[in-house]
């Protein structure tokens, strides 16, 4: 996946490193430009810009686990490199596809949350597309579980709603 190819470019860039601290306490070193892609980190860095030594800054990201972050960082790095060059949209799309193709549903949800929290909109768009694609033929129950939504309908209400448009429930994939 993306992480393997990005390791080489990591060393070549002489960018300043920023340390990100995940929800489970792990510290990850990233280039500053990558860190700036994350809204909370960006805000944090701006707030603490008077500090001379960037190396010393540790940005806490309390809502993102290290596992997700380590998935995210190479993607963002790669994506930044791609968009810096005058590459075709196709290439970016191909890259996105490659990134999302192997994601499990759980991972997808986690990434979506992280992307939302970190404000990485381009990733969020991609993930939304993928999610929509995955759930479009799924049952209501599946979607509730997938997105973690509580069913707040009474059984009667739900039955009534379902009766309104039975056609919509035709041809639903097995969960």
């Amino acid at each position: 996946m993306a992480s393997s190819s990005s390791s080489s470019s990591c060393s070549s860039s002489s960018e300043k490193k920023i340390t990100l601290k995940s929800s489970d306490g792990e510290a990850l070193n990233v280039e500053k430009n990558v860190a700036l892609e994350f809204e909370p980190a960006k805000g944090f860095l701006e707030d603490n810009s008077e500090e001379a030594d960037d190396e010393a800054i540790v940005v806490p990201l309390p809502n993102v686990s290290a596992a997700v972050l380590s998935e995210l960082i190479p993607y963002v790095k790669q994506r930044l490199e791609l968009s810096a060059k005058p590459v075709q949209k196709k290439l970016i799309k191909a890259f996105d596809d490659q990134f999302t193709r192997h994601l499990s549903d759980d991972k997808l949800g986690e990434l979506m949350l992280a992307a939302n929290y970190l404000g990485v909109n381009y990733l969020l768009d991609v993930l939304c597309d993928v999610t929509a694609d995955r759930i479009k033929n799924k049952s209501v129950e599946y979607v509730r579980e997938f997105l973690g939504i509580q069913n707040d309908f009474t059984p009667e209400e739900e039955a009534e709603l379902r009766a309104q448009c039975p056609w919509a429930f035709e041809g639903v994939d097995q969960d």
């Binding site: 997105l147 709603l161 448009c165």
Partner: peptide, 22 residues
């Protein structure tokens, strides 16, 4: 985020997912 997903769903799926929650 869920609404973002909802927007790109086909009509049929949207009709179905009315039952997901209020």
């Amino acid at each position: 985020v869920a609404m973002d997903v909802l927007k790109i769903l086909p009509e049929k799926a949207r009709m179905r997912f009315k039952c997901v929650s209020k």
